[in-house]
Amino acid sequence: MKAFQYATAHSADSARELVAGKGAYLAGGNDLLGLLKEYLISADLLVNIKSLPGLNKIEHGRKFWTIGSLVTVAQIEDDADIKKTFPGLHEAAAEVASQQIRNVATVGGNLAQHSRCWYFRHRDTVCLKKDGDLCYARNGENRYHSLFTGNTCISPVVSSLATIFASLEATAIVLRDGKETRMSMAELYQRAWENPLAHNSLSNGDLILRVEIPTARTRSAYLQASDKHAFDWALVSCAAAAEIVDGKLKSPRVALGSISPVPHQVEAANQFLDGKVLDEATATQAADLILKDAKPLEHNAYKVPLAHALIRRTLLKLKGEA
């Protein structure tokens, strides 16, 4: 870790001013310090934003709830109202890393975290994501990589909150150039789909302020599969949310993590599910649609059947929580 300066910001505007140039926002610090320790990024100034007012609250509205970007993952996990209203969000939060990390990790940091591709994270490989001219993973060790991508980099998004937020059709409110910008989860990661250098669509100085979650989908569920039983990254994660009206799905959304640079969503599948009664056959057909265009590589093809199983299970879990 190189030497840096440090400042504590007390307003979003001053935070933005401080961070301009070669600064970085410091919230939970899990991702940032990890990147700095491996010299993967450099920052001359760390701007502690943890005392920014108003961003550490969970607010309940009738049409949507607002979660401040400084709310910790542990806060979400422990919040009884969230567990009741958005069970999938509770489940996703509980699967994030470990207790020690959840205690400091923030919603904003979880969404903005960088790739976990082991070539990107390696201090001595200069891959596409680090402005090199080669994706080592594509013909190398790609067991944890994407089934879908819009560019030559195959590192997937790993934020489990992004997966569940996508299924809940949540919106991130981002402070950009002094103005609040609203971004869907798809928009929040779109740039990573297109540009190998990008981890998300945020530019330097952009600050996630909060996330708004519509309350319309009263059912939600999240599942992830990993090599281990705890404290392990998802090989695939899956979230689903919907209303169930007269036994039929209304406005269903399915999203997957760790298989694409963006939360993987297939509109055709959502449309297919809309109005359907959930059963094994419906879930299977939806899974087929969602994975139809997967482009498995040498070592990650197992993610196709794995994702298929998770989609089916997550969807059926929606039904189970009637």
Binding site: A3, Q5, Y6, A7, T8, S14, L45
Partner: peptide, 12 residues
């Protein structure tokens, strides 16, 4: 803390 608030300190 108050003094350091919004004040840039370090890298020393």
């Amino acid at each position: 803390e108050k003094v350091n608030a919004e004040k840039i300190i370090g890298p020393a």
